[in-house]
């Protein structure tokens, strides 16, 4: 009988258990590890420091309790909370509305500015990278103390946040409907309104709701630098050692942020 042996295949070895690492990657890993260890020694809390701080923390919490429920104080706090929510809402709405054209102008492959789209993109990056408290300081210096400075801060902060997400969402929008409309001679604005925005609407709504949630948290602390809202009341309470007032404000902030997260979660689920 004729033999039917198949040609001998080269013996295949299984891949290594550990991923191979280049000398450069290894060096970077060592440098980062060393930097972390040095930093930890300098800025991380030591166990002794934590142990010494705990009794002081307990004492402070004791002075904070019970939270102040004086009707006069609660009424004043209520007005400040309302102002905080107004700053967040107005700032977010203005920010989202401005972010739409900014995102469009900055989006790769969609922007009518071509290579000049880097200018709106750089502006959005500037708005995003400078922290909101720094913007608040700038607006307090230029517009004066109060809620207007806070609102402007939230507007700028929202453009930095939403502008980037809106631009990325538009870049990832389905290209086929856009091509179909361009082929029949639709202009850029009608393609934006008719094809791009409907396609990315869930992302736009999600980003806007995240921006609102973020704005509520941010507007709470803007008062610390004089930009209006409940934060201003919190600063006064700590400055004057009115810890029971401070605990009532912190509790109110907690409830506001929790309520806002609950609300935005529900809205996000609805618009999916």
């Amino acid at each position: 009988m004729a033999s039917t042996t198949s040609p001998t295949l080269p013996r295949a070895l299984p891949p290594s258990r550990l991923p191979s690492i280049s000398p450069l990657s290894f060096t970077v890993l060592v440098v980062v590890g060393a930097l972390f260890l040095v930093s930890m020694g300098q800025v991380a809390p030591s166990p002794e420091k934590l142990a010494n701080g705990l009794p002081r923390m307990a004492e402070l919490v004791g002075r904070m309790l019970p939270p102040n429920t004086d009707p006069g104080f609660l009424q004043r706090m209520g007005w400040r909370i309302l102002e905080t929510l107004q700053i967040a809402l107005v700032g977010t709405v203005f920010g989202v509305v401005i972010s739409l054209p900014m995102g469009w102008l900055a989006a790769r492959g969609i922007s009518p500015l071509g290579a000049f789209r880097h200018f709106p993109r750089a502006l959005i990056s500037l708005f995003r990278t400078v922290p909101d408290l720094v913007w608040a300081l700038l607006f307090v210096s230029t517009l004066g103390l109060g809620a207007v400075a806070g609102t402007m801060t939230i507007v700028v902060d929202t453009i930095g946040f939403c502008g980037r997400f809106f631009a990325e969402a538009m870049e990832e929008a389905d290209k086929k409907p856009q091509e179909a409309l361009h082929a029949i001679g639709a202009n850029r604005v009608t393609v934006l309104c008719g094809a791009i925005l409907p396609d990315v609407m869930p992302t736009l709504i999600n980003s806007s709701l995240f921006a609102l949630e973020k704005a509520v948290r941010a507007s709470v602390v803007l008062g610390l630098v004089g930009a209006g809202g409940i934060g201003q009341e919190l600063k006064v309470a700590f400055d004057l050692f009115q810890y029971r007032n401070a605990s009532a404000i912190i509790l109110a902030i907690f409830i506001i942020v929790l309520a806002m997260e609950f609300l935005t979660d529900r809205l996000r689920a609805k618009f999916q």
Binding site: E179, A180, L181, A186, T190, G194, D199
Partner: peptide, 30 residues
């Protein structure tokens, strides 16, 4: 087109009317 190129999240009626885009006075047809 082979892939039809419809805007998925828009109604069928809107997609058909969008066929008017590019014609004179069609800016509202989106």
């Amino acid at each position: 087109f082979q892939n039809h190129g419809l805007v998925g999240r828009q109604s069928v009626l809107t997609n058909v009317i969008q066929g008017k885009l590019g014609l004179p006075g069609s800016w509202r047809a989106w």
